[in-house]
Each structure stands twice: as C-alpha cells, then as structure tokens.
Design a protein around this nucleic acid. Sequence first.
DNA 1: GCGATATAATTGATAACTCAAGTATATGTC
DNA 2: GACATATACTTGAGTTATCAATTATATCGC
Lengths: 143, 143
Amino acid sequence: MSTISDSLTILISTMKVQSIIARRFDRLSVHGLGFSDFIILNLLDNAPVEKMRRIDLAEKIGLTASGVTRLLLPMEKTGFVTRESNQRDARVSYVVITAAGKKIFEEARQTAELIAKELLPSVKAKDLKILSETLFALGGNAY
Amino acid sequence: MSTISDSLTILISTMKVQSIIARRFDRLSVHGLGFSDFIILNLLDNAPVEKMRRIDLAEKIGLTASGVTRLLLPMEKTGFVTRESNQRDARVSYVVITAAGKKIFEEARQTAELIAKELLPSVKAKDLKILSETLFALGGNAY
DNA sequence: GCGATATAATTGATAACTCAAGTATATGTC
DNA sequence: GACATATACTTGAGTTATCAATTATATCGC
C-alpha cells in the first residue's frame, strides 16, 4: 500500500463528486433535458447576442466539437435551438436559442436551482468561494 | 437572460473541470490503464485486506454495480485483478489486486502524481484542505 | 422452515460521449 | 493568385457508461 498525494486525492474526489452531481441533475429529464442540454441553453441565454459558434460551446462546456454536434441534433429537432450562418465565414454555423428554448430553460432553471440548493446546503460561503476559485484555476468557467 | 446562482455555477463548473481532469489522465494509457482502472487499483491497494466487494468499489468510485462489472472484465483478463468468493455469502465476489496489478499501479502512480502536480501547481496547502473537505461534504471520498 | 423482501452481481439494449478521418472554407506566404 | 496550412463542422466506428431486467442468494418476520 502506497499513499497517494493530497492533490491526486482531490482530483479523484472531484471525479466522484461529478458523478454525484450528474446523477442529481438527471431530474431535469422532467423537462425533457439532459444536464448538458441545460448547460448549453444557459450558455446561449447568457451570450450577448443569444447565439454562439459550436466550437465555442464545445470549449465552454468541456466537450469536443463532435460531442456538441451530436448533443445539438435532438435539440434542433425539438426546436430549442436553430442554426444561423455567418456571412463572413461559411464554415461557421451559429447555434441560436429559440423562444421555445428560452421557455424550457426558464422552467428547467427553477428545478436546477432547487437541486443546487439540495446539494450545497451546508457548504459555507467562504468555502464555496475557495472552491469556485480553484475550479476556475483548473479551467472552470467564471460566467 | 436570467442569471443563475453561485451554487449552480459551481456545480456546472465542476462538470467542466471533471472533463479537463479526465482528459489529462488519458496519459495513463501509456500504462494500459484508464483513469477509472487506476482509481480501482488505488482503492484495492489501499484496502485493509487488498480486496473489496464489487458493490463497495462501485459506491467508492461513483459508478453503478453494472459499470464496475464491465470495467473489471478487461482488468481480469489482463490479470491485474482476480476474483475471490466469500464463504459466508455466495452472492459476493471479491475483487483482489494481483502482484501484476500492484506493479502496474505503482508505475502508473508515478505518472498520475506528475499529472496532479501539473494540474494543481499553485493551489495553496490551506486551500487544498478546505477543498478536500468541501468535496467530502459533497460525497467525495476521504481516503 | 416458509414466503416476502432485500441485496450482489451480471446481462441486453441503449445513451452519450470520444477519436480519427473527411469535407468545406478561410488565411497566410511567397 | 496559387499552394500550404489552419479552422469549423460533421460522420463512422468504437468506448464507457447507464437503466431495467434477470439470476442467485441472503435475511427477516412469523
């Protein structure tokens, strides 16, 4: 038995915590959304022009471009997002949130906030700040 | 545009950070191990009797029992772990780390520690402790 | 000791990704 | 302005997980 470092322990622990978080957010399925769908809608809703390039979505959410393409396919079909081309660069296809997308996001957001409260009830504000900063240093988004 | 809470932001950020961590640990493939394989070997190496029930591995790593069964199949074939039955409870099949498993774990551990240092170079010792405790509150393991 | 219920593990079908390769377009260099 | 290189996105094949159902065994209440 050889003990691993605190740093490595924290990284492994993060992996487990992620699986716990992901499972809790399965409840978003009552809105017909996966957690990744919800995160995408949040990014779009907060984007200055309510549209983003697929590649930027991928970078922000921590998926590959391929993963984003596949994630968006059903969302386009359902009508939560649509495509928009870029006049100056024909390679780009923007992802635009629709009115239906905004509506479902607003509903899902209520559920998501409830889940967040359930998950982080006892964590002190100060500790949350440290967690937040560390996550940011590790590449997490600041929003 | 409606702003989400700090708590929710942190949970989403954790998801992204997890994807960054997982990608870095892809490097463990030089040892023929996935990150999950490595975590399993670490759990077994640290277990008091160097064996664990599948269900306990699942709980500790944050997977389902099904996921553990499928994860262990190739590791059994390669000979990093073996099975052992429980005399008192025939439902249980223990997972036991082999000498080969210990050897590869020891090698992979060096790589893993390097990656951990690369990922968390600047995080202060005090923050690491708080971080560790926060993750534990969220269901992370203490080890 | 028997039936109801709970637990440990596995399996079939499926979901949500990844990587590598391919297509289309843009940009830089000479 | 042609050619090499880079970028945005998609697609085929494979991986790694999930859930629901199944099998086998154990435990509880009577």
